[in-house]
Design a protein around this nucleic acid. Structure first.
Lengths: 107, 107
DNA sequence: ACACTCTATGAGTATACGCTCATACACTCA
DNA sequence: TGAGTGTATGAGCGTATACTCATAGAGTGT
């Protein structure tokens, strides 16, 4: 069932998990520190249940791991390379904007 | 309208455009060469209209550029870094699989 | 046991996405 | 001009996603 996924499928799963602004903002918040759900909600101005579902998506994709500490649930990035990935996405996005703005448009 | 997008929004747009297996397969096919729509369809076994829409998404995201050459439309990647991005996604995916498989689970 | 706090989830809704069929559009060549 | 080829798009369908409200679950302290 889960073992017959092609590289394209695996890549798409990771990228889909990252393809929402709020989930990227969550990652940004986790760039330096381990964080618990409770401090993410106010910082990102997200409904608690909404945040919980976004976090679940990131955990299920293997991008985050979570562990309980009393009432709280803490989160940590499993692979620092996701930050490089997100940074590359921004670079590619900016490149595309510049191209469309005509910076490189001399035929 | 389009100028008020945060970095997270920009990143999410690129990642969303890449978050489908068929679009990743399209990119893989473009990794070395410029390709036209007509040869992508049979190679990837996609319905023509379906492929056309996937290509449109990639173009609108600024990941591909297209130009006409007679009847055909050719496509080229605008920024080679998307390949690094996709490669990173695979690395992160495999890392997550290994972690879940218990390779790194000694507490 | 109880109240209290933090997190997860069921239910419902609105919107977005992916796909297909049919058809319109663009271009070439006779 | 008309036939032929390659691409784009409208319409329709089924599914997936994002969000919210309400509530259940899990852990703490009294």
């Amino acid at each position: 069932m889960t073992g017959q996924r092609s590289p394209a499928d695996l890549e798409a799963e990771i990228l889909a998990a990252l393809s929402h602004p709020n989930r990227i903002r969550i990652l940004e918040y986790l760039r330096k520190d381990v964080r618990c759900n409770c401090e993410l909600a106010p910082a990102l101005d997200l409904e608690q249940s909404n945040l919980s579902r976004h976090l679940k998506i990131l955990v299920q994709a293997g991008i985050l791991v979570s562990w309980k500490e009393g009432l709280r649930v803490n989160f940590r990035v499993t692979d620092e390379r996701v930050f490089k990935l997100v940074d590359l996405a921004l670079a590619v996005a900016k490149h595309g904007i510049e191209e469309r703005a005509g910076v490189l448009e001399q035929a």
